[in-house]
Amino acid sequence: MENNREIIFKDTNLVSKANSIVEATYKLGVMEQKIISVIASNIHPNDKDFQTYTFSIKQFGDLIGSKSKNLYKEVDKITTQLMQPFLFINHEGKPTRIAWLSKATYNINEGSVTVRFDPDLKPFFLLLNQKFTRYKLGNILHLRSNYSIRLYELLKSYEGLTERTFTLEELRAKLGLQDKYPVWINFRQRVIDHAQAELAKKTDISFTYDAIRKGRSIHKIKFKIKTNSSSDQIIKIEEDTYSQDVIDIQRLGLEIGMNLNKKVITEWLNYGKNNIVELMQSIKYDDTIKNPIGYISAVLPKKATTDEQLALFDDDKSILIEKAIREFIMSKLPKRKVTRIEKIPHYMHRNDALEILKKYFDEEESKRIWEEQGAEITEKLYEESQSKLIKAPSL
C-alpha cells in the first residue's frame, strides 16, 4: 500500500540533493524549484523509496510569500510541467530525459495537491552516500529569481572550498541561459549582480566575483564564497519589520483622518509599504475622494505593478543602460539624408558617450560600461546610420 505523508512546511527543513543533480544542466522556474525543494525537504534520511506527499496550496503560498491571486491554477500548471520529461546532462556527461514528478493529483475540493518524485530520481535524493549538498529550506524560499536559486545551490555545494570558477559558457548552460542575455553586461547585472544582492540578504552564504577575460571577451567567472553569519536572523527580522509596518500605517492613517484596521493594512502591505504611504499622502488634501480606503484598495495594485517594474529596472540597471545607449545613438545619427557614412573608431566617441552615460551612472560605472560595450555600441551606431544614406539610383 502506498504511504502518503502530509508535507511539513518549515524554514528549518533540510534539503539534501546529490551534487550530480545540483551540477546538472536544466532549467526550472522559481515556483518549480521551490516545489522540488519543499518535497525534498520532507524526505526522511532512512527512506528507501519515495513516498507520496500532500501539501495545502494555501500553506505553500504563505510559505513562499506568493501574492498571486491565481495560486491554485499556477500550482496545477507547474505540477503538470514537472511531470513532463526534460533534458539534462548527467554526471557522466550523457544527455538524459527524466521527469521530476511521476504523480500529481489535484485535490480540487480539498485545496491540496498530492505528488511523488519520479523513481529515476532516487540516486539524487535517497540514501545519499556520495557527495551531496545540504541546506535549510528557508534559504531559497524567499528568493525571487530562479537564477538566484540555481546559483545558490551551485555555490553552496562548494561552500567549504570558498572558491568556484565557471567558464561563462558553462555557467550559462547550468542556469538555462544559453541564448538569453548574450551581452555580458546584461548577463552580469540581471543574473549575477541580482543573485549577489539576494543571497547576501536572504541566505546563509554570500559571494564576490571576478570576471576573467580571454582577449577582449569574458571567458570565466571566479566566485569567492563566504558564510553569511546574519542568516539565522533573517526570518525574525522580516516578521518584526512587517508588524512595525502595520503600526506605521495605522499611525499615518490617524494623522490624515483614516481609522484603518489591521486586516485592511495587511492586505495593502502585499503591494509594498512605500506605495501605501505615497498614496495616503497624495490624497491627504483631496476632498474629491469620498471613500479613501476604497480608493487606495483599487489604485494600489496598479501602482505597485508599475513601481515594481521600475524598481527592477533600477536594480539591474540594464534598462537605464539601454536608455543611455539609445540617447547616445540618436544624438550621433545624421539629422538628414547624407551621401556618405564614415565608420569612426569607437574610441573617438568615448567622451561624448561618457557625457550621456554620466546622466544615469557615476563616472566609474560610466567608464566601465563604455569599456565593455563601446565597440558594440559604435557598430550599432554605424548600422543605424546606414538608414540616412542616400542610395545611388539604379541603372
Rank of each mutant, 00 (worst) to 15 (best):
Asn3Cys: 00
Asn3Lys: 05
Asn4Tyr: 04
Phe9Cys: 12
Leu14His: 07
Tyr26Asn: 10
Glu32Met: 07
Asn42Phe: 03
Asn42Pro: 09
Ile43Thr: 00
Phe50Gln: 08
Thr52Met: 07
Ser56Val: 13
Gly65Ile: 02
Met83Leu: 04
Leu87Gln: 08
Pro95Gly: 03
Thr105Met: 10
Thr114Ser: 12
Asp118Pro: 03
Pro123Gly: 09
Phe124Pro: 07
Arg134Cys: 13
Leu137Asp: 01
Asn139Arg: 12
Asn139Cys: 13
Ile140Ser: 05
His142Tyr: 03
Arg150Ala: 14
Thr162Gly: 01
Leu171Asn: 00
Leu177Val: 11
Gln178Ala: 12
Ile192Lys: 07
Gln196Asp: 08
Ala197Gly: 02
Glu198Phe: 07
Leu199Arg: 03
Leu199His: 04
Ile205Tyr: 08
Tyr209Lys: 08
Tyr209Pro: 05
Ile218Lys: 01
His219Tyr: 03
Lys222Ile: 09
Asn228Asp: 04
Gln233Ile: 15
Gln244Ser: 13
Gln244Met: 14
Arg251Met: 12
Gly253His: 10
Leu254Arg: 09
Glu267Leu: 02
Asn270Glu: 08
Asn275Pro: 01
Met280Val: 15
Ile289Ala: 01
Lys290Val: 13
Asn291His: 12
Ile296Phe: 06
Ser297Ile: 06
Lys303Met: 11
Glu308Cys: 06
Asp315Pro: 03
Asp315Trp: 13
Ser318Lys: 00
Glu327Gln: 15
Phe328Lys: 10
Ile329Thr: 08
Arg336Met: 13
Arg340Glu: 08
Asn351Trp: 02
Ile356Tyr: 07
Phe361Asn: 09
Asp362His: 03
Asp362Ser: 04
Glu364Thr: 14
Glu371Ala: 12
Ile377His: 06
Thr378Arg: 07
Tyr382Trp: 01
Glu383Thr: 11
Gln386Phe: 00
Pro393Phe: 02
